[in-house]
Computed example of a mutant assay.
Amino acid sequence: MPVRLHARALLLDMDGTLVNSDAVVERCWRRWAERNGLEPESVLRVVHGRQGHATMAALLPDRPMDVNLADNAVMLAEETADTEGVVPVAGAPAFLAALADWPHALVTSASEELARTRMTASALPLPPVLVTAERVSASKPDPEGFLKGAAELGFAPEDCLVFEDAEVGIAAAKAAGMRVVGVGPRAAAHTPTAHVASLEAVRVEAAPEGGLVVTVG
Rank of each mutant, 00 (worst) to 15 (best):
P2R: 13
V3W: 01
R4G: 00
R4K: 14
H6E: 11
H6W: 11
A9F: 02
L10Q: 00
D15T: 11
G16P: 10
T17I: 01
N20Q: 07
S21P: 12
A23E: 12
A23T: 12
V25I: 14
V25A: 12
E26A: 13
E26T: 15
C28H: 11
E34Y: 02
E34H: 03
E34P: 05
R35Y: 01
N36G: 00
N36K: 13
L38Q: 03
E39M: 01
E41G: 06
L44W: 08
V46E: 05
G49V: 04
G49K: 03
R50A: 10
R50S: 12
T55P: 08
L60V: 00
R63C: 13
R63I: 10
M65Y: 10
L69H: 08
A70W: 00
D71F: 01
A73Y: 07
V74L: 13
M75H: 01
E84K: 08
G85I: 10
V86R: 03
V87I: 13
G91K: 09
A94Y: 02
A94D: 15
A97H: 12
A97D: 13
A97M: 08
W102R: 15
A105V: 01
A115E: 10
R118A: 03
T120L: 10
T120H: 14
S122M: 09
L124M: 10
P128N: 12
A133Q: 14
R135Y: 07
R135K: 15
R135A: 14
V136P: 04
V136M: 12
S137T: 15
D142K: 11
E144I: 13
G145A: 04
F146C: 06
F146R: 01
L147C: 06
K148T: 15
G154W: 03
F155Y: 15
P157Y: 02
P157R: 05
E158I: 01
V162S: 01
V162R: 04
D165E: 10
A166C: 12
E167H: 12
A172P: 11
A172C: 09
K174F: 03
K174Q: 15
A176V: 10
A176P: 07
G177Q: 02
V180P: 03
V181F: 03
P185M: 02
P185H: 14
R186C: 01
A187Y: 07
A187K: 08
A188D: 01
A188F: 10
A189T: 11
T191Q: 15
A194I: 06
L199D: 09
A201M: 07
V202I: 14
R203W: 02
V204K: 07
V213I: 14
V213K: 02
V214P: 00
